[in-house]
Amino acid sequence: MKEKKKMTLRAKKEALWGYAFVAPTMLGLIILNFYPAINTVYQSFCKTGDFGKGNTFVGLANYQKAFADPEIWQSLLNTVKYAVIEVPLGVVIALLLAVFLNNNKLKGVSAFRTIFFLPMVCAPAAVAMVWKWLYNQQFGLFNNILHKNIAWISDPKIAWISVGIIGVWSIIGYNMVLFISGLKEIPGDYYEAASIDGATGINQFFNITVPLLSPTTFFIVQTRVIGALTIFDLMFMVMDKTNAALPKVQSTVYVFYKYTFDQGNKGYGAAIVMILVAFIMLVTVVMQRAEKRFVFYN
């Protein structure tokens, strides 16, 4: 066995500086992330009092109530439905755009990249407000152009799709930038060799680009799935509280917000959010398993 080496003065000093430099980040994480997270777990077992005072421990009562509440399950289903629209469409469209905009010979390529990335720069609330008026049944641009009278965000059958489309529009720019950086990593030789062998552009796309891009794709899918499962602002901004389609669109975080802030029931809200966390963890584990099968690393 090796004896533990004693640290020299210099090494000690260096270590101290190391701690000093990570301290701000660690403090931030502990105060802003870890402490609230632990507190949320604790609160989910409590009947909470006003202003964080007078919490009483009630065991699993909040969870029992949540598991028996169809609203929670419906909201989880709504969230999944939103993710099913946002993630695949957001990835596919962004990938196609990235392939087209990866060509530096294209005129105005940086202008296009900027245009597609712009939604990412806008405040989500502002984006939602603009879309809300685009979708408006009476005065909205869509109905005026199409000469239709469609209740885009009030008809429970289509409202979830309408909201999902806003999500896709908002995210393609970000996904696209990640894809472009992924595409830059793929050596040009592969394409040269492939075209000498007579592969068409489409062949090259499916046999070179897609597999070699799979690490980027996986990263995007994983982060976007988590992002989509925690969606809140779109539903909150676009749908009025008396919108009949709301029960079929509201996400789990929306329901969490409703109980925690509208009704001041923080314990129940915490339990709802813990259920969501468990669900997200499950999805992440499944995706990590899938990574080994589908993702191709050089």
């Binding site: 049944q137 009476q138 005065f139 009030s154």
Partner: peptide, 18 residues
């Protein structure tokens, strides 16, 4: 109809002459 009110709000509808 209530669905229209929920989307546009009564104040906007009124001010639009609807």
């Amino acid at each position: 109809p209530q669905a229209v009110v929920a989307e546009s709000g009564t104040d906007s509808l009124f001010q639009s002459g609807k």
